[in-house]
Simulated scan of single mutants.
Amino acid sequence: MANKENIEIIRGLYKAVNEKDLEYIKNLGAPNSEWREVPFDLTVKGTNAIVDPWAAWFRIFPDATCEVQVLSGLGDYVIAQGIGRGTHKGTFDSPAGQLEPSGAAMQTNFCDVYKLEDGKIIRADSYFDFYGVLKQLAPQKVGLI
């Protein structure tokens, strides 16, 4: 698939994220898909590997949005950089422990690297500043209160 087509698929992914269109996101998965949450050293595999992390994120941050600032591609790879935002309304099972809903607004920089094959996301590596998110949601856990 051409580089331009892959970029448009990922542009569509973030449009679906902002619209909470889980069906669109689910259709980007394949049996051999992998999603890696780098800050958590967690990898999910299989057909739902692309949609499940987003569904979990929406349970924690129902108003979550992603403002993509850079979207670039090279062959099968697309890189998205931007700012994720949301309000903490759901329980967050995080590496720092369970974070109960705080109602706090958060934002974090992210960089997601995607590998696509035949219009499907085969691998996604998601990088974001979990420590920064933790400081915004539960400052007592990082000694700020």
Rank of each mutant, 00 (worst) to 15 (best):
T43F: 00
L42Y: 13
I25P: 07
V78E: 04
L99P: 06
D21R: 03
F58P: 02
P31K: 08
G119L: 08
T91D: 13
V38N: 05
L22R: 13
K115I: 12
V78T: 07
K141R: 14
T65P: 07
N3G: 06
S126R: 05
L22I: 12
G12K: 05
A64N: 07
K26H: 14
M1I: 11
L71I: 06
V133Y: 02
R11C: 05
K26A: 15
I7N: 03
N48W: 05
I7H: 02
H88C: 12
I60K: 00
I7K: 09
L22Q: 11
V17I: 14
D21G: 08
P139L: 13
D41P: 00
G29V: 09
S33C: 04
D112F: 12
E117F: 05
R36E: 15
P31L: 13
T43R: 02
N3D: 14
F128N: 03
I9W: 01
N6W: 09
Y131H: 12
V68G: 02
F40E: 13
Y77E: 10
S72C: 13
K89S: 08
D93Q: 11
A16C: 06
I145H: 05
A124F: 08
A16W: 08
R36D: 10
L13S: 02
I60M: 07
K120E: 11
Y77T: 12
L134N: 09
S33E: 02
Q136Y: 09
L42M: 15
Q81V: 07
F58W: 07
F92E: 00
Q136G: 04
F58Q: 02
R11P: 01
L22N: 06
D52T: 15
K115P: 01
Y77Q: 12
G84Y: 10
T108E: 09
L74G: 14
L134M: 15
L144P: 01
V133T: 01
N48K: 10
E19Y: 02
D52R: 14
E8T: 10
A96H: 08
I122G: 04
E37A: 11
H88P: 05
V38W: 06
P139H: 11
I50E: 02
N109F: 12
W57H: 12
N32R: 13
A55E: 07
L28I: 08
P39E: 04
E5R: 04
T87R: 04
A55W: 00
Y127L: 11
D63S: 08
L28R: 04
R85T: 15
M1P: 14
F128L: 15
I83G: 02
F128Y: 15
V51S: 11
Y114N: 03
F92W: 13
L116E: 02
A16N: 03
G86W: 06
H88Q: 10
F61R: 04
Y131T: 13
L137S: 02
P101D: 07
